[in-house]
């Protein structure tokens, strides 16, 4: 029961984008190792973005282009 509720809660967070930053951090950790070996990505070595900065970028990107229909 508890795990089902938890699963639903995760889906809601996922759908609404509430967990976007956590996913970003995970993704960052996953790919950071590869990126440090590329010379053209020095900014990534400065560590991940702060939550506020990430959210700014995320929101602006999400709203670029056709996102809603009739």
């Amino acid at each position: 029961m508890h795990s089902t509720l938890n699963k639903i809660w995760q889906i809601i967070r996922r759908l609404s984008g509430d967990d976007a930053y956590e996913r970003y951090l995970k993704n960052y950790a996953h790919y950071h190792h590869q990126e440090t070996h590329q010379s053209d990505a020095p900014s990534h070595c400065a560590g991940p973005l702060s939550k506020a900065a990430f959210f700014k970028q995320w929101q602006d990107e999400k709203w670029n282009g056709i996102k809603r229909c009739c």
Binding site: I12, R13, S16, G17, D18, A20, Y21, K51, A52, F54, F55, K56
Partner: peptide, 8 residues
């Protein structure tokens, strides 16, 4: 920032 569900 980023607390989408709270705000919603």
């Amino acid at each position: 920032p980023g607390q989408v569900l709270e705000a919603s």
